[in-house]
Amino acid sequence: MKSVFLVGFMGSGKTSIAKALQTKLSWKLQDTDDMIVQEYKQSIPEIFRERGEQVFRDYESSVLKKTNLEQTIVATGGGIIEREENRKFLKQQEMVIYLDTSWEEINQRLSDDETRPIWSNENTDKKELLKARISKYKEVADFIVKTDGKSVDEIANEIISFI
């Protein structure tokens, strides 16, 4: 097995589930958001504020192509599927899991989260953004895992059953 890529909307649990999978499988872990922070020496909110979302998306596309593809769990950013080049890259990977999380669950999980630039932007209709992205997540996914009402451990075990 080469690697497992996790995709889904912000708040769907990609990072938490990636960490659980890393522990259970003893694989490497890469998080594209962490890779951006390390490579570009700025936090995600700083990049959004100082350089804008398009520059962030450029960085995101760049680091996606640098992911280690041997026994690695890759947690991607929620908007990574917005660019066609990223969807093409993901479709070429051995396994992509879409963490399908309802709007109600996401809204509950992120209600107090002020660290996510898109979530904290009052001018963005997050529910509409989720609706617009669902078909793109499904386009790249080999498997869809519904996350509502499940623990991180339950979701990780479900993903392991696909491997």
Rank of each mutant, 00 (worst) to 15 (best):
R116V: 06
I97C: 03
V145H: 01
T15C: 03
G78D: 05
F48I: 02
M10I: 00
Q42L: 10
V145E: 04
V4E: 05
M1G: 10
I159S: 01
D148T: 03
S3R: 05
D125P: 09
R109C: 01
K146G: 05
T147D: 14
S161G: 09
S62A: 11
E60P: 04
R57L: 06
S16T: 12
E53W: 00
L64G: 02
G79I: 02
Q38C: 12
K41Y: 08
E104N: 13
K131D: 06
K41T: 08
G8L: 00
E94K: 15
E139K: 06
K150Q: 04
E82M: 07
L64M: 06
Y40D: 07
E70C: 10
I36T: 14
I81M: 05
I47K: 00
M10L: 08
L64N: 03
A156C: 00
K88C: 05
V55F: 12
S43N: 07
E94H: 08
R87F: 04
T124P: 09
D31Y: 01
K91S: 07
V140S: 10
K41W: 07
D58R: 11
R116K: 07
V55H: 07
T101G: 02
E114S: 14
E85A: 15
E84M: 15
I160Y: 01
W27M: 03
T67G: 10
V152Q: 08
W119E: 03
K65H: 05
